[in-house]
Amino acid sequence: MTRSGPAGYVFFMDLKELTDSAALAKLALGEGELESFAASVDRILGYFAKMMELDVEALPPTTHAFQKENVTRPDTPWEDREAARRLADQLLEEAPGREDRFFTIPGVL
């Protein structure tokens, strides 16, 4: 998995993988940011490589400390309809762009 990248210090993730990951994460990295993130990410992934030393073949993965099964609550409407409406209104108040009770975004068509 060791590679040498164009910047000379990228061993574990090349710049294309970094920019691809940024695109997937909906982040735009500036010129200076790209270089500094490349160095930081590389240093951390190099450290993550330590995990390869351990033989984990026989171990099942743990996804959660204690939870064995999914817990759900009944899907019932709020008894206090007015309180539900007030909460919804307050959430809508926080919207950076809104028309009536809708969020607005630039046109997609």
Binding site: M13, E17, L18, S21, A22, L24, A25, K26, L27, A28, L29, E33, S36, F37, S40, V41, I44, L45, F48
Partner: peptide, 19 residues
């Protein structure tokens, strides 16, 4: 997202997306 998040948050999102 790019203007709102600071450097450490972006770094962790990038790492998490990658892994």
């Amino acid at each position: 997202r790019s203007e709102g998040f600071g450097g450490e948050v972006k770094l962790r999102i990038l790492l998490g997306t990658y892994v």
